[in-house]
Simulated assay, not measured.
Amino acid sequence: MSLTALGFTLVFVAVALFISMWQKLGLEKDLFVGTIRSAVQLLAVGYVLHFVFRSDRPLVVIPILWIMIAVATWNAAKRGTGLRRVWLRIGISIFATEFVTMGLLLALGIIPLSAQYVIPISGMTIGNAMVVSSLFLNQMKREIASARGEVETLLSLGATPRQAIHDLLKRAAKSSMIPTIDGMKTVGIVQLPGMMTGMIVAGASPLEAVRYQILIMFAFASSAALTSILLSMLTYRLWFTKRHALDGNGAL
């Protein structure tokens, strides 16, 4: 794609700005900032990855993965405002998900130990884990608000915090996985995912693109399940006080 063609893509942003002003949505500032940030960030990443792929040294990949995990943790933690040290639980969950997923891919020989494969697939895995974390925390807040009386009743009857909140955790974990599962059901029919589309546009065989997309979708299913289950195990205590009373803010 030429720079001129790339510049013409701003037409799509202009359409969004026009609709926002027309309907008085108040999104003009966010759209402008998002456009600038996404362009700058992607260009910067492009130059960094160009250097990393050319050097192809595993030790260079590790800091990049840590940065990805840190940024994903910070972003997801914003959904857990009021929960003490929730960022630590999210970070552990995302790291464990990335470690297990990438470990299996490398151990089974599905992908080679190369920056060209590890970084893009890790980025998608970590990004999916971040979204699942955000959805889990949002749903848990709603569950706590709507089922507070139920949980307090169970606690008064002698249930442990884990027992009292178990059903809420299950519903939150299920809810956080729905987008991933729905995506698996409709992929290839309703949508052609980004990785597959990018490979086809770049000239790769559609069959080869499909194989990698299947890999990503299956890895997404695993990472979503791992992240949601780990978060439910690591965060349930945050919704209670030291005396095991339900605390809507999750502060210990």
Rank of each mutant, 00 (worst) to 15 (best):
I111D: 00
I111F: 02
L104N: 11
M124Q: 10
I94C: 05
P112Q: 09
A96L: 15
G127T: 10
I110A: 12
I94S: 04
F95M: 13
G127R: 05
M130Y: 04
F99Q: 11
I94W: 11
T125Q: 09
S114W: 04
S93M: 12
I126E: 02
L105V: 03
S93Q: 09
A115I: 00
P112L: 01
S122Y: 02
G109R: 07
I110Q: 04
L105I: 02
M102E: 11
V118N: 05
T97A: 14
S133L: 07
Q116T: 14
P112N: 08
G123C: 06
L106W: 08
A115L: 03
G127K: 03
V131L: 14
A96K: 10
S114G: 09
P120S: 03
S133V: 03
G109N: 11
A107W: 15
V118A: 03
E98Y: 13
A115M: 00
I111S: 00
E98C: 14
S122T: 02
T101R: 08
G127W: 05
S93V: 09
Y117F: 13
I121A: 05
I92W: 10
G127E: 08
E98W: 15
I119T: 04
A115H: 02
I121R: 05
I94H: 06
I92H: 04
G127A: 05
M102K: 07
S122I: 02
G91Y: 03
I94E: 08
I110D: 06
V100A: 14
M102G: 08
S133D: 06
M102P: 11
N128H: 10
I110C: 07
I92Q: 12
Q116S: 15
L113V: 12
G109E: 07
L104R: 10
L113G: 04
I94V: 13
F99A: 15
P112R: 09
G123M: 05
E98F: 14
V131I: 13
L105T: 05
A107F: 15
G127D: 11
A107M: 13
A115S: 08
V131W: 10
E98G: 07
